[in-house]
Structures are given as structure tokens and as C-alpha cells.
Amino acid sequence: MSIAKPRGSIFSYVLAAIFSVVAIFPFLWMALSSVKPLQELYSVPPTWIPSHFSLENYVNVLYHSNIPRYFLNSVVISVGSTSIALILAILAAYGFARFRFRGRNALQASILISQLLPTATIIVPLYVILSNLGLINTYIGLIMTYLIHTLPLCVWLLISYFRSIPYEIEEAALIDGASRLTILWKIVLPLSVPGIISTVVYCFVSTWNEFIFALVFATDSSVKTLPVGLAEFSAEFKTDWGAVMAASIIMTLPIIILFFAIQRMFVSGITAGATKG
């Protein structure tokens, strides 16, 4: 932090206030709507603060819908996919960061480019492949397809983290008699904890939020994830907006908590990966 940074004027405060209101308003409105009883939700003009605080929407969602089951499915799939992505990405990122080998740059670039691939271009053949393998409507099917989103970015983020560790430290470990795997496990990983955490959160969040693959590959309620459940909630007969808002809060809260718990680490991780890449 430098002392010479320009100081804010009145104008800055006004601008900051506008941005903040715009950013937070939909979230607040969702929260407020979720605790309004039905007749208040559909009143004209709308009330700002609920005159009757009510948890009936949450009761509906938690006890009279499939949302709890979907929540569980989401947890299983996100944790599973994140774990696999992390293990594969740690190995690959270390290989890219620390070894010189023929074709390294091309392979590394192809990993980045694969992340640029529009989902729509591979969703059809993926569906065909998954149904041939009998993996439609299975946890493992979604866990594997989510690697398409998470693995490239994890590799990319971790490469820049691993590169930021001075190589001399690893050389010292080589001389101390450590094998490459020992170095990775005992030296590199402990030194990349912030990077690993932000990578894990990124993976978890992006799988948690994923909608299209889940919509196509999970049509049975035993594997449907929260986003699909939410969409179907708002489409099922006449939309119960109170329940939708309550379900939205239930889905968003874990993510918000996760983010703000590690905000500083996460922000620097994402921006470092992106600006260096």
C-alpha cells in the first residue's frame, strides 16, 4: 500500500455507493422475498421490509420438495470432481512448472485452449458417449464431465503458484536426497497452501454452480443437482416465487460463506493466474 495513492473525493463515495447498491440489491431482494408470506409476496405495491417475518417458504423447500436430496447430490458431485481435479492438476502443474521436455509449451497451451472450448460444441457427443457407457444419471458421469471445466483452470492456477516457489529450494531438497514426489509432497505442497485452497474453492464453486451438463446428464432425481432442481422449481406448474427464493438462498449461502472466508487468498490467486497466464 502506498501513501501516494490518490485519495477519494465525494464523487468516489457516491460512485462506490451506487456500485454497492446495484451489486447487492438482487441478493438482498432474494433474501427479503424468501421470508415473506405468500400474500405479502404478491402484494402491489411491494413491501420493502416484510411486515410478517415467515419461514414457511423454507419449510416448504426443506420438507416438501426434493431440494435436500439435490443438495446432497450437489455435495457428492462437487467434492468428488474437485478431489479428482485437484490430484490430477497438482501432478500436471508440477510437471509443467518444473520439467523441461519436448512439446511442453504446446501441451500447456492446449490445456489453456481446451478451457476456451464452448460447452455447446461437445455436449452432444458427450451425451452419446456417456449413454453408451451407461453413465447418464450417475454420479460418476457428472463427476467426470465436470473435469472438463475444472481441470484446465486448476492446472493453470497451480502452474503459476508452483513457479512462484524459488527453484533453489527444490534443488536444496534434491541435494538433501529427496525424490521428486517427496519434494512435491513435503516442500511444494506445504508452500502452496493458499494456492491449493483457492484452486479447491474455484473448482468446488464452478461445479456447484454448473447447470447445462447437469440438465442434460442428470435427469433422474437421484442424481439431479441443485441448479437443475432450482430451474425445475421455477418451471413446475405455477412458480412459487417464495419457495424459489428460499431455495436460491439455500443454494447460495454455502458459496458466499466459502468465498468470504478465503476472499483475500482467492482474489489474489485468480488474478495472479490470469494476469501471468
Binding site: A23, V244, Q263, V267
Partner: peptide, 28 residues
């Protein structure tokens, strides 16, 4: 990037839209 009182809070608040799942943004 400018220094003003409450900068950290504003930065956190600005993160919310990005963090909220797309599907939730859509329904809301």
C-alpha cells in the same frame, strides 16, 4: 484502486454478483 473509507467492504460487496450462481441470478 483509490483510497477511501470502506474500500474493503465495497470490494467484498462487488464480489457478490460474481459469486452468486448463474442459476440463482437468473431466478432472482
Amino acid at each position: 484502486d483509490r483510497q477511501f473509507f470502506g474500500r474493503g467492504a465495497v470490494r467484498s460487496i462487488l464480489l457478490i454478483p460474481w459469486v452468486v450462481p448463474s442459476i440463482v441470478a437468473a431466478t432472482t
